[in-house]
Every structure is written in structure tokens, then in C-alpha cells.
Amino acid sequence: MDERSRNGLGAKLIREKDASAIGGDTRGADGEGAGGPGARTGANGGGAEAGPGASAGLDEGVGIGGRDTRAGVEPDGDDSSSSHLILEAIGVSKTLGSKQVLKDIHLAIRQGECFGIIGPNGSGKSTLVKLLSGADGSYDGKITYRQQALTIYTRKQLARQIAVLQQEALPPIGFSVQEVVEMGRYPYQNWLGEEKEDSEAIIDGILTELDLKPFAERSIDALSGGERQRVALAKTAAQQPELLMLDEPTTYLDIGYQQQMMDYIRLWQRREGLTVLAVLHDLNLAALYCDRIMVLQDGRVIETGTPEQVIRADLLEHVYGIRPVIVRHPENGVPQILLRGGSIG
């Protein structure tokens, strides 16, 4: 137990009484994982490997260990209460037509963490995000935001708390960058378009931060896909949310833009305690930026845990049908995947 307690977040998971909040099938997440197979993942997650790795490699020191220093989030203490839970899904299932696309999903996202969801195509990731963001209201089970059912919030209230960044967030329409980012303030405006805060200063700050000032008056249909996605991120920033949901936001971006986007989100997280839910295809990206990852397959949760716990050859083979090589990132020790690139059969 001491080993695990050293590692803030990982240990918290394992210690939590309501194991159901993490995932029904997770190994090592519930109390009885102490002795058996869970010990391997639990100990690894809480032990030496993750510790120095988490704090040493990443520049800002953010990571599983680094979270303890972020403002507004207590690393330990009375986390048996769910006061730090931002988003919770309990027994969520959804059927589309005759197919059950989500089966008994449980998850609990804590304030300030970056929670990743990975899984093969058709595993239900996008559907789950639609439910969690309140875009789709028909499902079985419960989804709560800050302990209150999602359905209680009005659309604008929800928009002030949760922002969603999609794959292709902005169609090439005729609005300028400034105008699009201003749209992010809609949840705060009354019907006359006025709001209490000084939105101009907020928007200005965001544009400067994201290096969009030179483009401010340009129409977004004249921008490249990567630049448009940056504008989309700026728009979500203007919403000043507490929870940012990313639905494969980096799919159409080149490596440079991918890193830029994830780095900015991490910066935002560190500075303001933003909570992030990210659906990602890229497992390496997920391992690098997420504190915990949930693996979905066929609408079911296979496992939820830290990248160390989840990025394992046997799990990935089971879920994706590949046999990757798992290496440790030379700078921060986070598990990364290398494909073998062999022929079939």
C-alpha cells in the first residue's frame, strides 16, 4: 500500500471503494487486486517505474506524479467522497436499432485529470462521447455531471461547463476567425447578445495564446485544416469550460499540429485545472497525454487504468488483434507502441 500511495492518482484508483466507478472488468482496480494479477499492474502503476518517469520526462512536470502540484486539486485526502468527480457514468447502455452499441459502461472522471478512451473502430467511442456530452439523451443508465443528472442542466448551462472538440470541428464557412471564436461565448450571452464578462479581453487573450492574432480577420475557409482546428480549439476555450471533450481531434492533423494541439490542451489543463476526456485513435498520444485510459471493445469496457496498466501487449492483442512491441519512452518512461510491420500470416 505504501508503494501505491506514493503515486497520487494511480493509488487513488486502486484504493477507491466504489470499484464500479472505474470499470466492471478492470483488473487490479478493485480492492481484491492486492494479491493476484492486479498486484502487477497496481504495483507497477503505483511504484517506482511510473513515479520518476512521470515527473522526470515531461517538461512541465505534469503527469501522474505531477498532478499533485496543480492548483485546485488535492492529491490525496478524503477522496473516498466523490466531491472531485466531474463526470460519472453508471451502467450506461445504448441500443441502436437491434444492435447494442454500449453495454454497461462505468466511468468516473476526476477533476483535473486527462481521461482517455481508446478502442477499435465501431467500439462505441463516439457514441459514448455523444451521450456524455449531452448531445444524445436516449440511453439506459445514469450520467451525472458534478453529481447532478445531465438532463437537469439546460443546454446553455451545460455549454458553460462542457465543451466538445470534434474531428472536423469547423466546416469551411464564411466567418472570420474572430467571429468564430466569439461564437464560443454564446452560452454566456442573453438574447440581445450581451454578457456580464468582458468577452473582448477573453477572446483577445485566447487568440494571442493560440497564435491566431495574425489571422483574426481572415475567413476560416481560407485556412488549412490544421489552422481551422486550432480555431476550433480557440472557440472551445472561449466557452471557458470545466470539462473539455475531445472526439478524435487530431485525426486529420499532421504530426506538428497534433503535438501542438495536445500541448496546448495540457498547458490549459495545468493552468486552469481543466478536466479532459479524450477519445483518441493514436495509442501513443493517449499514453503520453492521458492520466488514465479506458479501453472499449464492442461497446464494453475492457479495462480502465493508467497507461502503464493498459498499454500492454496482451491487452492490445486481445482488443486490436496486433502484436506490437511495447517500449518505454526514453525521456519519460511512458509506454509506447511500435508496430512490427510484418506480413500477414
Partner: peptide
């Protein structure tokens, strides 16, 4: 009119920004 502007982003996007 402002809601109509948001519609240009797509129905789902507009919904995420708080439009009914």
C-alpha cells in the same frame, strides 16, 4: 439571428454551444 449563425457550424456543434 445568433442561433442561426451557430447553425452554420453544424447542428451538433450548435447544440454543444447551447442552442436548442
Amino acid at each position: 439571428t445568433r442561433s442561426l449563425n451557430l447553425f452554420a457550424l453544424g447542428e451538433r456543434q450548435a447544440s454543444h454551444l447551447g442552442v436548442h
